[in-house]
Design a protein around this nucleic acid. Sequence first.
RNA 1: GGCCAGGUGGCGAAACAGGCAGACGCACGGGACUUAAAAUCCCGGGUCCCUAACGGGACGUACGGGUUCGAUUCCCGUCCUGGCUACCA
Length: 949
Amino acid sequence: MPRYDAKRIEAHWQQYWETHQTFRTEDTIPTGEEANKPKLYVLDMFPYPSGSGLHVGHPEGYTATDIVCRYSRMKGMNVLHPMGWDAFGLPAEEHAVKTGTHPRETTEQNIATFKRQLKMLGFSYDWERELATTDPDYYRWTQWIFLQLFDTWYDADHVWTGPDGVERKGKGRPISELPIPEEILASGGASALRVDAAGNALGGLTPNRSPEVSEAIRRYQDKHRLAYVSEAPVNWCPALGTVLANEEIIDGKSERGGHPVVRMPLKQWMLRITAYADRLASELEPLTWSDSIKFMQRNWIGRSTGAEVDFLVDTRDSASGRASALRDSAAGNALGGLTPNRSPDELVIRVYTTRPDTLFGVTYMVLAPEHPLVQKITTDKQRAAVDEYIRKSSLKSDLDRTDLAKEKSGVFTGGHAINPVNGERVPVWIADYVLISYGTGAIMAVPAHDERDYEFAKTFGIPIVQVVAPAEGSGHTVEIETAAFTETGVSVNSGTYNGLPTADFKSQITKDLTASGLGKEAVNYRLRDWLFSRQRYWGEPFPIWHELDADGNPTGLMRADSAESLPVLHPHMDDFKPTGSPEPMLAKATPEWLYKTDTDGVKLKRETNSMPQWAGSCWYYLRFCDNKNAETFIDPEKEKYWLPVDLYIGGAEHAVLHLLYSRFWHKVLFDRGHVSTPEPFQKLVNQGMILGEPDENGKAEKMSKSRGNVVNPDDVVKDYGADSLRLYEMFMGPLEQVKPWQMSGVEGVYRFLGRVWRMIVDDRAETTTLSAAVVDSPPAEDQLRMLHKTIKAVTDDIDRLSFNTAISRMMEFTNFMSGQETRSKSVLEQFVLLLNPFAPHIAEELWNTLKAPQLELLENAGLLKGHNVTLTYEQWPTYDPALLVEDTVEVPVQVNGKIRAKIVVPADLDAKTLEAAARSDDAVQKHLEGKTVVKVVAVPGRMVNFVVR
RNA sequence: GGCCAGGUGGCGAAACAGGCAGACGCACGGGACUUAAAAUCCCGGGUCCCUAACGGGACGUACGGGUUCGAUUCCCGUCCUGGCUACCA
């Protein structure tokens, strides 16, 4: 009993918190007195409950948020601090393939383990709000949000003012409000059919419209939805049995497991995140996120501005041998004399460039091997070589393609195109350094001013024409024989444009191209639409049906499940083995699950893809505010009260994926009026990774099973207790920094807690009683001053999430106080309150020991209630600034910047007197002897510096 | 290659606004208590030099320059480490 017994104390208080629901946040929005409390929503990135249990990396962020929450409760805030499980995902399904255990069973076991471990660490979560993305009550609403995406199109020109009062351009609107082009409305033969598309929720169908027109409208709408089906080359991973998003592929291999990935065309669900690219980039600005994360997001979105330029194909050497459409006058005029109203059989290569000012330097063009024009412009002579190149590059995985990055490859198609600015005939090549998925899939190559083009031109002996010269005084030099010049400058060899600075040239040529119909300003994004379907079992089924014709073939038309019919549950399955083909797992479901006939007699087949793991994590922070609501995904009042998340802490590995997807969904919900804030996470902090224990060379590596350096929180808690683990993880160093684990450091904070214990408790007594040194009398002045210094330091440190320094200040307090023969009880009580956010179990125990007489009185009077016992809702200590002022200070005295003496003077001594005091010091005089003082700098209370010669 | 973050004792680190570099902790050394050990408590410490000692001096925050009375802190250049990204036209 007398010794600091972490195990007993922690078990007792965890039990207490549980039975008294100490950390329960009221489900209703506070009213009356309570409404004056500021709200604080503090969120952890919820974990994937893996089979291996909690890792010491998890409690790092969780402890940080827990400190903020416990501190804020004591500051009188209404705190929301929930926890849940990102529980869909491949490992549970892979386990099912191996053992036949249903993924739900594995998932539930893993959740139980995680929950036990988190409770063991004493985090102050409101467990009433627990949720798992795999709960039907949860994914019902994931499916519902998908239907919102399915029901939304992006109106890029719509100018509107959101509930936040900010004017925006571009809005997600109901698909029923999508304007239908006249030619579609007229396509059914019925002339001038007037349609009020806005009036109809379901596909804009009106009874007086011909079936052909209705179908055309539906197909048109389907092309504009934020959730749409597209057939495109995607990343198929045979080992995982699923397609993967670009974001999930690293160096041509799957991020999970490192399996090879091949590209093949497949029909897949896509989410139109590119529509929100601009807003996702620009609305990042006001958020309190680290610059590096903002930068990574902006980079991922990769907005660039430039121009699209049309190059007419010179058909005289095309394989088809068609009559030339090229006017021979082409070369005559500045802009090639090409007229905008071209004949339909002319072939045009449209390129995207950020440097339209280098158009005069184009010496060849490149199409991506997959470009649709390749076949048309390839000459018979080159056909064999071109086909061979296409075949080879299609076989290459992305990995091979990047591996070969150093060596440029490509083949001449035999075709030529006409440079619109000077009418020159330029050869057209294909090469895999041009990607079909970016820009137009074709480039104009300017070897003189682009490194990649330069390298390619050198490899294949293509001419290099310099059209930009360094601006005068820029300090740049050009040696076009050895390297490309990629800087901006002044144009040369560019006809009438000569002498223009790059920026001016860009805007001028873009204007001229636009005027002649040969080009236009264009914006491009690195960001691609989000591939949203997977072929696995353990993910959310899509709430979508495909219409079948009389023969049972899909017509390409779709129907959505009604919101009321959700959730779409998983079918029962015994066999979880991947099909080995891109055929989804759910296609193996029973016919009852797969097929139905709708009320209008149309046969329907279920969508058998499932959603990716990102889906559930895109909106969980919303559901925490109202996790039991059966009517809607979140009550609008609760959403308004709790959102946005005030502090979000998690690993930097989610810098672009989860955090971008989540923001995208949130913006769609915002546009559709379901949430009131444009952004979900106001402040974001990334904790640094915890590395393994350093080896004998002092080198620390990432924890991993294969290195055998994984630290299990269970073991640490067993040996030292949860308070020590929490304290150590915060004491290691700054939260955001990468730092190595050192078990001896845990020992150190454990010793500190022992000192705190003995500072207050008599560790030789039979029961937990106060140390004889603790006296119930007014504190001595130095104790009081130490306390107030500590209160200020700890408070300031928590406010800036500097937990390591907060702990060291509490250590200083303890070192000082332990040395005092009598310790004021009131001072110790205040200190225990400061300790509480960091080491809550021992703090509760000490608080109750210090408060025992008062508590006993209350108990005898029958007034003892839960919140009288726990210190959770005690007021956070405040400090008196007057007590922090020292009477005297030690001031360093420098001579020529070198410290020669330290003098003790009254703290408020003015500069003149301070200088005199410094000058009279013996050591200073010695250094001033025989020298001339040219200048004296005296800063009251800080320092004195004599400048001598 | 590009971008971001960082480089301070044997180690993790601190110095928040240009003003005493190394708080706090670990490891280490010495001492007390003990039959002994553990636990606990006390003391010590950047490096080098001078001194028997008290004490004193020089150097020191990756490296080289600069601004300043004064630089770990600001500026320029170089090197190294970690992270992200990678033919995005």
